[in-house]
Write a protein that binds this DNA or RNA. Structure first.
Lengths: 233, 233
DNA sequence: TTTCCCCTCCCCAGAAATAGCGAGGCGGTA
DNA sequence: TACCGCCTCGCTATTTCTGGGGAGGGGAAA
């Protein structure tokens, strides 16, 4: 593993990351290696060994909202084998069939990676083989994959600075309170009552939070506060 | 490194994690090893080799909102050496002086770890030595520390079952569309227009989504859909 | 000291969301 | 077949939220 990680750590530029993913694939003799970035605005960036046809199809069909790998990892802390995800819904099964048709392996292992402000990325390896072989392979390389995933993410961020920091303005304590209770379903009157302030005052907080978050309305502000990790509900 | 990580992977129970942090400290011959879990509701869980006096002081003074390690890592993607953090504010320097007085080393290295819904943890090692020695040590063990940090986090979560998956009822495709656009800040009229349906129809989706999610209003429904990973925004 | 942000409170009019009632067609499952 | 969930559309009335405006006090930083 070592030389692979060394190479990755010395990669310069996005093209080098593309090359690195191919190198990783060849080194481990697996079918695919993919790094996939999603941010809270819905923008995506991908890099890896999937075919162009599949990647285009994925974007065109907006499979982001269907893909059980994305949906599953989004709710999870730890790396996960694809077998443990929920493929039972009909859209998921349609998606799965099409993925396999496009050369994505029947086995997969994905490492979720998170950053500040709700930023989210996935590092995935996929392969075609039986369950036992795959279990042995992932057991043997789990640690490597975690390290590679984080290094890959670090590199990808280095080369795309516009995506990385994007300092979102912090909310004041009262604004956090307001957003939190609104996210919990309280009406403005209830929130004001809970915080023991007038509803007028509360409204000022909501407005300033909305302004800071660049949100068009309360629902939008709460959604942004959540996806940026400013509130937890 | 290997045997240390093996031991950690076999740890069972919170007491074992405490023992593991001491073992790691002794293995690397450093002053302190600490794991610190935070959610923005203010709950904290800590585990490690700091003195009880320092831990109590930290909680009592609510240093969470002052500690540059927390504040800095919260805005950062990657592991960071304490030297690169911002210690310039007055509260930060007061905090630093007191930390050193309580036996926390002058050097430190912290790995931020994130989970779904804004959950956040830190794995930290700290030591007293000169800059050069510390730089060499962190360079040599950076990878180990990342792996240990993630394994530690995994274990800590295993033993805290209050974050159960809580499988929730799925939304229909149209309901997902509705929730998604609402989370993006669209008004009802805009969402209806975007989906090319009447606003009345849209309202039915919002209501049924609200019902399925057990939400009291639209904002609540969107918040729940997000925190359950039913929509990705 | 001045400036800036945070917290608190007030009024008003118009826009938007909610609550309740109703209807019919389509497709899959029991 | 009958049921159920999903998608689509309609009406009215009430409640709630939004977007302007304004005011004052406190604390921290420059």
């Amino acid at each position: 593993m070592e030389p692979i990680l060394e190479d990755l750590e010395q990669a310069e530029g996005l093209a080098a990351l593309q090359a690195a993913s191919e190198e990783i694939r060849d080194h481990y003799r697996i079918d695919h290696v993919v790094y996939h970035w999603v941010d809270s605005a819905g923008d995506q960036y991908g890099c890896g060994t999937y075919s162009d046809a599949w990647r285009d199809r994925y974007l065109e069909q907006n499979y982001l909202r269907v893909d059980p790998v994305i949906l599953g990892c989004f709710q999870r802390f730890h790396p996960v084998d694809w077998k443990r995800l929920d493929w039972s819904s009909k859209p998921a099964r349609t998606f799965q069939a099409e993925a396999i048709k496009h050369g994505v392996g029947n086995q997969g292992f994905s490492v979720p990676i998170r950053g500040p402000n709700g930023q989210f990325a996935l590092f995935t390896v996929s392969h075609s083989c039986d369950d036992k072989t795959w279990a042995e392979w992932t057991d043997a390389h789990r640690r490597d994959l975690i390290l590679i995933a984080h290094t890959f993410n670090e590199k990808a961020l280095d080369f795309e600075p516009d995506r990385a920091p994007e300092q979102s303005q912090a909310l004041s304590p009262r604004e956090v309170d307001a957003m939190t209770f609104l996210a919990m379903g309280y009406s403005r009157a209830q929130v004001a009552d809970t915080l023991s302030i007038s509803e007028h005052t509360l409204r000022v907080y909501i407005e300033s939070a909305r302004f800071k978050l660049g949100a068009m309305n309360t629902t939008h502000a709460v959604a942004r506060a959540m996806s940026r990790g400013l509130i937890v509900v």
